[in-house]
Design a protein around this nucleic acid. Structure first.
Lengths: 213, 213
DNA sequence: CGGCATCCTCTTTGATACTG
DNA sequence: CAGTATCAAAGAGGATGCCG
């Protein structure tokens, strides 16, 4: 990317990560941890493969990503964020927080990956009963399942299944988010195409932080 | 800008503000307040004028900027951030914080504007003596002067002069920042090309927040 | 002068095909 | 799996022109 040529810390940051796709690559590495090239392609639907290769080289050159040769039996290259790269997390969270306003109406052609639940859930929802027992909610948006662990005042998301989920939500990502955010009541959910297994009253424990913006 | 087509709040945010120059236009409107077209050009050295016009139209279309016809005698168009636009402040602060690491060595050709002191000073420094009397430091980087007001635990920057500054720093922006951040001692300053008027001991009141990153 | 619109060139992106 | 190679289309940069 051509430098802005401005002695300003925002411009300097954008000199490094302002290119198209760059921050989304960092997003994937933050959400998924160290990734193979193919994992990245999968988490970045729409990216051209040559661009992904270019960007990874640039990120490596800028010291935000390190390339590691994984030992056999894996025997593949892993891309991992350096500390400087991981330092972008607050910036991605701030952007993700601001972008929540556009999550109400997805385009029909929008792609989705389960790890993307992490930002909307973690930024927008909190655990209204910090001293209560851990609560685990499995999300099944169609692709890989994800689990929201509600405990200690926070709601954390990870890929994978829960051993014994208290609640299972199955349906389109948009509806899962709207149910979690209480924009849709458990009673309406089945009619909209969202299946709930377990006691929907447990959802009251998750409360939106509406102070945002 | 072409949409990423991803149902992810970070990608949605970048769909709106991910274009080249867009976030820097928002930066100027945040730092300077409502601006004329010419003020924006001045605060965005290097932007092509057609690109500024395009971006302003896109920002207006996205509801981040409002156009106002100022009444005579000014009789000009003012561009002002909407609430949605101003909501980007945390994202700019997070990016600016991350970008601080690149402020150590400016390129020779880097442009500078005094309002850009705001982010490095406000994000990196704090007032170590919140109950002390207000302290005002005038910065003269060569262009317009700026004032840092140190009070109530914070360091706030604005364009303009102070009536009775406790301290005046005159020299290149890089050296002013290094002195404020205590990377350079007041004793070294004159030899480097930085003039200090007033009692340099007052600078101890400004302390870097090194917890960052 | 303030606020753009046009024209032209150059760079970046996207889509697809191909390779060790 | 992890990329390169190729090529058309879109966008950025720079100069200049226009109009109240």
């Amino acid at each position: 990317m051509r430098s802005y040529g401005q002695y300003c810390s925002v411009a300097k940051a954008l000199d490094v990560v302002g290119d198209r796709w760059t921050l989304l690559i960092v997003r994937e590495l933050l959400l998924q941890g160290p990734c193979r090239y193919t994992d990245l392609r999968n988490g970045l639907p729409g990216i051209a493969t040559n661009l992904l290769a270019d960007r990874l080289n640039e990120l490596e050159g800028a010291g935000l990503v390190r390339r590691e040769e994984a030992a056999p039996p894996v025997a593949t290259t892993l891309f991992r964020l350096t500390e400087a790269g991981a330092g972008l997390e607050p910036a991605l969270e701030a952007l993700g927080s601001w972008g929540l306003r556009y999550m109400a109406e997805p385009a029909d052609s929008d792609e989705f990956r389960s790890q993307w639940f992490t930002f909307p859930v973690g930024l927008f929802l909190h655990d209204a009963e910090p001293d209560g027992p851990p609560l685990s909610i499995e999300l099944r948006p169609g692709g890989r399942p994800a689990v929201v662990e509600v405990r200690d005042g926070e709601a954390r998301t990870r890929l994978g299944s829960a051993e014994a989920p208290d609640l299972v939500l199955e349906g389109p990502p948009r509806l899962i988010l709207r149910l979690l955010g209480a924009y849709v009541s458990p009673a309406q959910a089945p009619g909209l195409g969202l299946a709930i297994t377990g006691d929907p009253a447990l959802l009251r424990r998750l409360q939106p932080l509406r102070q945002a913006e």
